[in-house]
């Protein structure tokens, strides 16, 4: 059910943007849109399947903690 909701939400986004994209002659715009859209869809599906659990802010947290040599408190996990 969640997968269907995710796909419908992204389909909704695409349908909202489609008329504008169709009018637009700029190929660059379509490519950037396509990349962002597919990254978003893939990320949502991967999160739902449990394969991805981290967000970008969490990756930053891990990276900075590593470089500063500080431990992330165990309560985080």
């Amino acid at each position: 059910m969640t997968y269907i909701s995710i796909i419908s939400i992204f389909l909704g986004i695409f349908l909202i943007d489609y008329p504008g994209l169709k009018k637009d002659k700029d190929l660059n715009e379509k490519i950037v849109y396509g990349i962002l859209f597919s990254v978003g869809l893939a990320y949502a599906l991967l999160i739902n399947s449990g394969l991805v659990k981290n967000s970008l802010p969490y990756l930053v947290l891990q990276a900075v903690s590593f470089f500063r040599g500080i431990k992330i408190p165990p309560a985080f996990h």
């Binding site: 986004i13 994209l21 637009d24 715009e29 859209f37 990254v39 999160i47 802010p57």
Partner: peptide
């Protein structure tokens, strides 16, 4: 990316922000 407008990027970015904000910190 040398685009003419950012209008089309708003909603895909929103989707990414929603996912990241939701997962950010527990």
């Amino acid at each position: 990316f040398r685009l003419k407008t950012y209008q089309h990027l708003v909603l895909p970015i929103a989707a990414l922000v929603i996912l990241n904000a939701h997962l950010s910190f527990s």
